[in-house]
Design a binder for these strands. Structure first.
Lengths: 332, 332
DNA sequence: CTGAAAGCGCTTACAG
DNA sequence: CTGAAAGCGCTTACAG
């Protein structure tokens, strides 16, 4: 690959002049400009982003940290991020943490050694104090999907609303014995969904039954085992609200294996509107989140933080969610 | 963030000495070493990878190019790649092409400006001549999942075998009118699967019926519409082999919507063994590919290419596939 | 064993 | 408008 030096030689000018015509950071005589551009074209010269980054203190690279690549909520969000970044010449380097704090800290260190200009993190748990520290150092961070507190910029969905809407929907269909399969309470998003659901119940005067609350470990397996437990209750719940589509899929598997039909015997509502949720039989009624838009927004925010860091107060953007009615719930 | 200069000052040595103790590129007196290490610890110094990269011509960064983030075959492969890379301090920067050649070329240019040490590409189509050019320049490239020709290192699955095994399985179950829903013939992998399937048929003396061959466009929708066509045949096929799980999901949706049962009325075999395929009802019989292992292998190969570029002949690693029997095929 | 110097490929004051 | 010089944060011959 040719360097700025090669171009300067071929064009018969100094490297300063080459740099100036390429960055248009200072006026260059039209004739000189042309000579330089020709040389650039002939040599197929591409400026070295790394060298430039070292000089100007901007790498034009962002870090993205997610808990794991296998989770299906991220592809759309990543797409949103990269689409927003494309216009600005930014690249994304990524890492997954498996929700391991130590690993996450190492990852962030590695990213900073690489001079990333900012970080989009989709990993915040209650223990994520290191993120606060980054922010205090003035390092641009925005949280995506997972919320920590009001001190760090974040782009999240309205999880409380999602829990409420899902619960309310089932209530309106006439159900009162509703199973609730939740995820880890380490995550604010699950606490919010839970609280929204509870409030929907109390608003309708339905008493809370602790035995109908099940904790679903990660992935569809979590939903499967949680549902198995719920099925052991007598009488078992007439409807189930799972706080992620994979958990719903697992629950559905458990229900089918028990020889029951959805929605005839049990109704189920999921959460996420994964592409897959429309493909099962019956198609899953679920709470949809605008992952793509949230990704886009996160990218925009991080660029803002990078370009004018004067802002002090963090802003948390909360996107509305949407109930998507399909075939997994019946009228009671 | 502190620099090597800060460390040198604090330790009372030259920056050369700091560099040497940190890279252990030359002997340093134990006492000096300790002083340096202390200073490093106190300042929480992290060497700047970008600066180092510029000097030594290695960025410790790899590019990964895939057609799109939404495709579900990549998460496992990416996981394999990053797991293999972790031990070597390599990071991944990624891009998606939407199978757009121009965009891919731009992406690669951008990556090279960023001095990535090598590229893992999962995008090769028949038009990917630019990849050959990279390879000729001596730039490390390995193809993943998608094959181009024997001139570039690649890690792929045995797609011919997959087509053959799937076809043969259905034949052994007693079916002869088998629909085949394929993907784009721009991709070698689909040509291979098709050819494997055809050979399974001819080996059993089953005549090829062009009307049973359907082309499925991208995603589950492709499988859905292809199946709709197949369903219009009289008599319609008694079994269907879809060359991707999403296509199979779409086909299944179409079958269900026609009021038919799987496998009672039509048997179906998918391809990929996506996590999801075990969650539908009935669970999908499919051809499994070792995505994670292939990702790992691709990472290993690219590191090899980077570290000893003496090798001239390309090596194509072909991983075996596996038929995973579940509930979507009946005995005729 | 250690330091001063050169240099990776750029950008950007500083002179002219 | 243009060039020579300094410098981003490192590594690595070159001297000693």
């Amino acid at each position: 690959m040719s360097t700025i030096k090669d171009v300067a030689e071929k064009a018969g000018v100094s490297i300063s002049t080459v740099s100036r015509t390429l960055t248009s950071s200072a006026p260059v005589m039209e004739e000189t400009r042309q000579k330089v551009l020709e040389a650039v074209a002939e040599l197929n010269y591409q400026p070295n982003t790394v060298a430039r980054g070292l000089k100007v203190g901007r790498s034009k690279t962002l870090g993205l940290i997610i808990p794991n690549y296998q989770s299906l909520v991220f592809p759309d969000a990543i797409k949103g991020i990269t689409d927003a970044l494309d216009d600005f010449g930014y690249n994304l380097v990524l890492g997954d943490t498996y929700d391991n704090l130590e690993r996450e800290e190492q990852l962030i260190e590695g990213l900073r050694m690489r001079m990333v200009d900012g970080l989009i993190c989709s990993t915040a748990t209650r223990t994520s104090t290191h993120l606060l520290q980054l922010k205090e150092e003035g390092f641009p961070v925005v949280l995506l999907l997972r919320h920590l507190n009001e001190d760090i910029d974040a782009v999240i969905a309205d999880n409380y609303q999602g829990g409420f809407v899902g619960g309310n929907y089932l209530l309106n269909k006439g159900f009162t014995r509703i199973g609730f399969i939740n995820g880890s309470l380490e995550l604010d998003l699950y606490r919010q969904r839970y609280s929204g659901f509870q409030n929907a119940l109390s608003a309708k005067g339905v008493e809370k039954d602790q035995r109908l609350m099940a904790h679903g470990h990660k992935g569809w397996q979590g939903g499967y085992y949680a549902m198995l437990k719920l099925l052991n209750q007598k009488p078992f719940p007439e409807a189930v609200f799972a706080t992620s589509d994979p958990k719903a899929f697992g629950a559905i598997k458990a229900i089918h294996e028990s020889g029951m039909q959805i929605p005839q015997d049990i109704s189920v509502v999921g959460y996420d509107n994964l592409e897959f949720s429309q493909l099962i039989n019956p198609p899953l009624t679920t709470i949809g989140q605008p992952f793509y838009d949230m990704g886009r927004m996160a990218a925009q925010k991080i660029l803002e933080l990078i370009n004018r860091d004067n802002r002090k107060e963090a802003i948390v953007d909360k996107f509305p969610v949407e109930l998507i009615e399909r075939g997994s719930v019946r009228e009671k």
